[in-house]
Design a protein around this nucleic acid. Sequence first.
RNA 1: GGACCUGUGGUGCAGUUUGGAGUGCACGCCGGCCUGUCAAGCCGGAGGUCGCGGGUUCAAAUCCCGUCAGGUCCGCCA
Length: 581
Amino acid sequence: MRTRLCGSLRVEDVGAAVTLCGWVAKRRDHGEHLAFVDLRDHTGIVQCVVPGTVDVRSEYVIAVEGVVRPRPDGTANAELPTGEVEVGECVVTVLNPAEPPPFAVADRVEVDEVVRLKHRFVDLRRPSMQANLRLRATVNRALRAAMDRQGFVEVETPLLWAPTPEGAREFTVPSRLSPGACYVLPQSPQLAKQLLMVAGVDRYFQIARCLRDEDLRADRQFEFSQLDLEASFAGQEDVLEFVSEAVLDAAEAVTGVRPTDIPRMTWAEALDRYGTDKPDLRFGMELIDLTAVFEGTGVKAFGAASVKAIVLQDGAGLSRSRLDGITDRAKQLGAKGLAWFRVTADPGTGGDDPALALDSPLDRFLSDQERAGLLSATGASAGDLVLVVADEYRLACTVLGQLRVELGGRPVGEGPYRYVWVVDFPMFDGFDEAGNPVPAHHPFTMPHPEDLDRLESDPASVRSQAYDLVLNGWELGSGSVRIHRADIQSRVFSVLGIGEEEAQARFGFLLGAFRFGAPPHAGFAVGLDRLVAIFAGEDNIREVIAFPKTQSGADPMTGAPKPLAPGVLAGLGLQLIPSKG
RNA sequence: GGACCUGUGGUGCAGUUUGGAGUGCACGCCGGCCUGUCAAGCCGGAGGUCGCGGGUUCAAAUCCCGUCAGGUCCGCCA
């Protein structure tokens, strides 16, 4: 039907008779003797010249027969890769007329996202969306090739799984053959891939769909994709190597440059320096500890376990209302309050190196020693803004870590790419209502061997063999060495407050399988949507998903979710409870 | 469950603070003109439940209450 693609034509093709197919991007009609039609396909746009009139409109699907020729002197278009040439003497065949699109198919046009999603098939014609889809395919291809090369075998795992409450809310699928019973859609293939290790698959991977019925965010959809992997007779070092290889291959496939090896940082260091377990290493602005400076202080607000600060360079000019807004944000993040200090040059001292002074409601409560200590510890200069949070250590860190990202010099758009492995996560993350520790990763995570003897006596201090991959402040994925021995597993369950009976009820099939020869194994999962979004320079994963949902979980195109047709529920043995109100 | 922001012809916006006739801009659409344009140009035209409901008022896009939708975030996401 076609002999060439629109975006491929160059000066070398001059003289070639071509047939092109695509959509009308633009028609410029110059009367009965001349018309230009910009023809678009997935490869780009080329100008077609019709020696007469042509009855086409935007987004008509047409075929064009013509001859490639150089453009007349002075009419080349530097904006188009095909701009040196045009297709002349064109004969246009309308393959399918089209109604005017609800919005213009062009990257520069901003359109409400609901309108875009409702007409996603039009939205995806836009060059940037085409590029995102193809970028995603490139990443998938590179990841698959890397896993294949490293001896991993791709295995598909079930979408209809058994309810195994693990943390995230699951989507439920009622069974027709067993009325009243349900499958659930897997929040990840975690248990299936561990069973594949018991099954002797040795090295498994899958580009897996995962489904979680939790509230949506810019970086979270109900359904998302992971490069999921698991390896037998492998530990943390092996897994980090496998994943690095795959991710760096993908980066190279996309950018043409292979990043250097990925540095590592312990979880404790990430929290202390960046206030998060997913540090964005593209800029500094690290957290500064002022606890020693305010030891025994008379400033009531700083009488806390930990006092930490960040310096916003040239931030002293921020308005009072802006500072109030930042304070509100700190409170929203859980802080009791936020102290700010504008650093100014002391007008009383002159010369090349004037003394520094602080402008803050709290300044008059500071001792001279505290004032000097704050300035020297932060290294702030005139014109800077110092933000201080005094609280429990972890909260002070996380609040400032979040403000660092929101206020700091975080680069936008593509590159540079700063990867980091965050290792030595804590085994547990706080305590639940019953006083039991909550697993930071999942209950099959192997404790750090050096900390194993404190599992029962001091669980909060126990590190795990869990690790995250972070890129530019996004959590790209996480993994762990799994427990493969029954004795350690039962100790962990016991610490978690999961009794033998409950463990059997929830994970019995896995524990049962482990009795038949489970190899030591470890694994990981890389969030594909996030990886592709970062490579695409998008700050929202919806931009790299063909048909995403809105934040309330709706699809404006299909109308999902929708009530079921009458009779369908009954056929499943289900009945609706009238909603209140 | 909660906070904040947004909602005005097909698209993007201004108008809302300080109530006074659906007033305006750009793009698109329809018709006409035009032989080198490329965000073509010129002339003319059509197109509106100001998200929805209620209230205040002589009068509401504008003020108040509620509600719906979207976005960002908190909670949630082992």
